[in-house]
């Protein structure tokens, strides 16, 4: 039983690797589907923004309010903006954005492609001379890879604003003082690696959503399973990639 599960895990990992390989092969074939790409940018990027913005704002606010008592205890209250900005930019904003997107976008892609698969729409594309892999998968994976970093950068800014409000609830921290401290603190090593990793988050979310949707079977029940497992696997991958990213920046001495 356990060995069977392990076997399934290995098989699926292999399948996902092959799917990713196919993505890169099809990516460079001629005729990129620009219209579909822009349509997806709208759906994936623009429509996810409100959710990401609200979450980022609340996270910034809450983290700041929660951190204050500890700092006060050490008499280091003036360090609040520095501490909060580092944790928001390095970790919280990118990872929260990626998780929200894994939930919203990953499940959306999984369910959309899954239902297209079970209602034979993907077969219909195939017979009408449009490569469904290029049309559906390549466009979506590129969109998530490009859009999630943008959403993460916006989330960075919004969460910092939330942090500013949080810092202002008790003592008055002036606008200038807050941002001066934030920009003094944040270094290249804080910002750039955290943006780079979001490209990988985006890629993983797109690939897993598409893989799950594209390989759906068993009718409508399968669509639910596809959407669900797309979220589970891509969220897990976000954490694994985050762990790797920390290790790599550490080795490169950027910490």
């Amino acid at each position: 039983m356990a060995s069977e599960k392990f076997q399934n895990f290995i098989d699926e990992t292999g399948d996902i690797a092959r799917f990713t390989g196919r993505f890169f092969k099809e990516l460079f074939k001629p005729r990129f589907e620009f219209n579909e790409f822009f349509r997806q940018c709208f759906f994936i990027g623009y429509k996810s923004f409100p959710l990401v913005a609200i979450t980022a704002f609340i996270m910034g606010l809450v983290i700041t309010i929660q951190s204050r008592p500890t700092l006060v205890e050490f008499g280091a209250e003036s360090w609040l903006p520095r501490m909060v900005s580092v944790s928001l930019i390095r970790e919280i904003a990118p990872v929260i954005t990626a998780l929200i997107c894994a939930g919203k976008i990953g499940s959306g892609i999984g369910a959309e492609l899954g239902s297209m698969k079970v209602t034979e729409q993907i077969d219909a594309m195939e017979v009408s001379g449009t490569n469904p892999f290029k049309f559906l998968v390549v466009t979506r994976v590129i969109t998530t890879t490009l859009m999630i970093p943008i959403l993460a950068v916006l989330a960075d800014a919004i969460s910092l604003y939330g942090g500013f409000l949080g810092a202002n609830i008790h003592g008055v921290v002036s606008w200038d003082l807050f941002w001066n401290q934030v920009f003094d603190t944040l270094a290249f090593g804080d910002v750039v690696p955290s943006i780079i990793k979001t490209y990988f988050f985006g890629f993983a979310i797109g690939i897993i959503g598409c893989y799950k949707g594209f390989n759906t079977n068993k009718g409508t029940e399968g669509v639910g399973i596809a959407a669900n497992s797309a979220v589970v696997i891509s969220s897990l991958l976000v954490f694994i990639l985050d762990l790797l990213a920390v290790q790599i920046t550490d080795i490169l001495g950027l910490n």
Binding site: S115, M116, T119, E120, Q121, D123, A124, M125
Partner: peptide, 8 residues
């Protein structure tokens, strides 16, 4: 297609 397979 038997299922029509219209792009919904």
């Amino acid at each position: 297609f038997q299922s029509n397979a219209l792009y919904d």
